[in-house]
Design a protein around this nucleic acid. Structure first.
Lengths: 328, 328
DNA sequence: GGCGTTTCGTGAAACGTTACACATCTTCTG
DNA sequence: CAGAAGATGTGTAACGTTTCACGAAACGCC
C-alpha cells in the first residue's frame, strides 16, 4: 500500500554525524550548540525527515489528537461547531478525530472506546446520553449537556435566549405567540429555550401556544399545525419562535408560500445564528449563539485540564439579531 | 493530564499464564487453542485491557486513520459529504482525521504534511488546488477535482446535471433562463454544471443569461441583479438554475418575499439534493447528487488501492427531483 | 590551579505492540 | 514404528521515538 523508506531520526543522526539524542533535542527545541543544531537541521532538510507521531505517541503517551463526538453533521449547528472546533484545535497543534454518533448513546460509548484505543488526549462531546462517562481517565468536555459534576460543560444561555425571543416579539407588538421546537427525548440545555420563552410570556402576560416534536426526521406535523391555524390567509399567531434557524427558515419559506408576509403579518425568530439561514439580507431574525466562542471555550477548558482544577460549567451569553426585510 | 496505569498485553499474558505472542494472536484472530483463547479472553475482560493503537501503528505502519481534507463545513454539501465519509470509514474500521483548509491551497499542503506525520493510511481531499500531490506515497483520492493522472477522482456528472436542469426548465415551459453560480477561481468539476447548462440551452434554442460570482462570502450582487431584472413585480426570467441548493433556497426566499410566485411565475432549480433545502414538502427542485454514493466510492477507491491498480476516475449519475409546492 | 558548577552531547533503555525463528507436541504416512 | 509434516505455543528482536544517567568540556571562584 505504501513504499516505506521514510528516513528516521537515526538516519538524520548518521547524516549529521551526531548522536540520536541530539537530533531529538533539536526537534523538540531543547537548547543545543549552534553548530550542532545547524548540522542537524541541514540533515533533516536534506533527507526530508518527518517525525513519526506514532513512535512519539507510544513513548510520550500524548498524541495531540482530540476526539470530536457529534450526533450528525447534517444539522448546520453541528457542522458549524465542528468547523470551529477543528480550526481551533488545529491552531493549538491538535488534530481532531471526528466521530459521528447518530444521536445514539450506544454509538457514543463505542466511540469513547475507540478514542481510548486511539489514545486521544481528550474528548469534546455533543452527547445525547444523560450520563456519558469517559472510558478511562481521558479528559472530556461536553457541549450543551451536563453529564455529571466531574465533567465540565460549555453551553450558551439557552434559558435567557428563550426569554429574549419572547421579549423581542412582545416589543415588536406581538400578542399571540407560538413556540415551535424539535426536542430531544432526554432534555438537555437546549430544551431550556422553551422554559425561558414560557417564563417570559407568563411574566409579560402574553398568550402563547407551543408545538414540540420529538422526531428529528419530519417536519410535516409543523406544516399541518400551521395550516390548521391559518384561516382565510390570516394566521392565529402574530409571532413565532422556532428553536433552530433551520426550522425557522423552513417555516418562513412555507408561510411566504402561503402568501403570509414576514414580518408584516407574522414576526419570526429562529435560534442559533447560522449565517446560512439568518443574520443576512433577506434572512430570519434569530437568537445568536456565539459558536466560535463556544468552540474556543470548550477547547481551552479541555487543554487546560490539569487534573487539579475544579471542573467548571461555562454558560456564554446570546444576543438577538434582526433579520433582513423581505421587501425592498 | 492522565493517570496511566492501563494494562498492557504483558499484563494480560501474566494474568492468563501464557506467552505474549499468544495474547497477540488471540487479539488478532489468529487460530489459538480453545483453552488458551478462553484464558486470554478472560484475562482481557478482567483487566479491562485495550489495545494501544500507537504501539500497533508503530510496529505495523498501518494506523486505520484517514485524513479528510475539507475546505469548510459551513457549506451543507461539504458537511453532508463529511458526515457520509466519516460514517463509511467507521464502518470499514477506519477513523477520520478532519482537516479544514478554508479553500486555501497552502493550508491544504500543510494538512498533507500533518497527515504524513500522523501516518494516515490515506487521504480523501476536496481540494481547491489544481495539482495537490500527496506528501509521500500515501494513497489519495480527490472529490470533484482532477489532480493529475496518478490520483483517482470521484465526482458526479456535473455536465449532465447542468444539461438536465436546462432540459427540465425547457420542459416546464420556460423560455428565458438564468444561471446563477458561485464559482471557484480554478475551474473544477463543479464548474461543468454551467457548461452543460449552456450547451443544452443552445441546443434547445433557449435564451439564457448568467451571473457568476467568485466571492463566496456575499450574495448581495445576486440580489441586486435580480432587483434590476424585476419590473413591476414581473421578473425578466421564467426559469432560474442555481448551482447549489443553498443559493437556490436564498433566491427563492428572496423572490417569494418580492411577491413572485414559485413555481407559477418563475421555475427554480437548485443543485446538490441537500435534504435541508430540497426534496421535501415546500422545498426547491434540485439536481440530486448521490452524496452517500460519492462517499462510498471514494472510500472504496481509497481502501482498495493496491499500488498496482490503475487509478480510475469515477463519474456518478445525477437526477432531477421536483420540489414541493409553495401553496396548498 | 584545583574544585565545584554548569552546559551540552552521548548512548542505551524504555514505550506496547507485531512478526518471526524456534521448540514442542501431534498426527499422518509408507 | 521411524521420520516427515503439520499444529500450536514461546521468546525475542524490531518499529522510531523520548528520556535519563553519565561523561566531557568549559567556566568561574577563592
Amino acid at each position: 500500500m505504501k513504499n516505506n523508506d521514510n528516513p528516521t531520526m537515526k538516519d538524520v543522526a548518521r547524516e549529521a554525524g551526531v548522536a540520536l539524542g541530539t537530533v531529538s533535542r533539536v526537534i523538540n527545541g531543547i537548547p543545543v550548540g549552534e553548530s550542532y543544531r545547524l548540522r542537524v537541521e541541514e540533515a533533516i532538510e536534506k533527507l526530508g525527515y518527518r517525525v513519526n507521531s506514532y513512535a512519539r505517541g507510544l513513548k510520550t503517551n500524548r498524541t495531540n489528537c482530540v476526539a470530536l463526538l457529534m450526533p450528525s453533521l447534517s444539522h448546520p449547528f453541528f457542522a458549524a461547531l465542528t468547523d470551529k472546533l477543528t480550526a481551533c484545535l488545529m491552531k493549538h497543534g491538535y488534530r481532531s478525530i471526528l466521530m459521528i454518533t447518530n444521536y445514539d448513546p450506544e454509538a457514543e460509548k463505542k466511540c469513547l472506546v475507540l478514542g481510548h484505543e486511539n489514545k486521544v488526549d481528550g474528548v469534546i462531546a455533543l452527547t445525547y446520553s444523560p450520563d456519558l462517562q469517559p472510558d478511562d481517565a481521558t479528559p472530556m468536555v461536553t457541549i450543551d449537556r451536563h453529564c455529571g459534576d466531574s465533567i465540565p460543560c460549555v453551553s450558551s444561555d439557552n434559558y435567557r435566549g428563550g426569554e429574549i425571543a419572547a421579549e423581542k416579539l412582545a416589543e415588536l407588538g406581538c400578542r399571540r405567540l407560538l413556540f415551535m421546537s424539535v426536542a430531544s427525548d432526554i432534555p438537555g440545555e437546549v430544551e431550556k429555550r422553551g422554559e425561558g420563552f414560557e417564563a417570559a410570556c407568563r411574566r409579560l402576560h402574553i398568550a402563547y401556544e407551543q408545538i414540540i416534536l420529538h422526531d428529528r426526521d419530519t417536519e410535516a406535523p409543523f406544516y399541518d399545525f400551521l395550516l390548521r391555524h391559518i384561516r382565510e390567509g390570516v394566521p392565529d399567531f402574530d409571532g413565532i419562535f422556532c428553536n433552530t434557524d433551520r426550522l425557522a427558515c423552513r417555516m418562513r419559506d412555507f408561510l411566504l408560500g402561503q402568501g403570509i408576509r414576514i414580518p408584516e403579518d407574522v414576526q419570526l425568530i429562529g435560534y442559533d445564528g447560522i449565517t446560512d439561514y439568518a443574520t443576512g439580507r433577506y434572512t430570519c431574525s434569530t437568537i445568536v449563539q456565539p459558536i466560535a466562542q463556544i468552540a474556543e471555550t470548550a477547547v481551552s477548558l479541555l487543554l487546560d485540564t490539569t487534573g487539579l482544577a475544579v471542573p467548571t460549567n461555562i454558560c456564554l451569553p446570546v444576543h438577538y439579531a434582526p433579520g433582513g426585510t423581505t421587501r425592498e
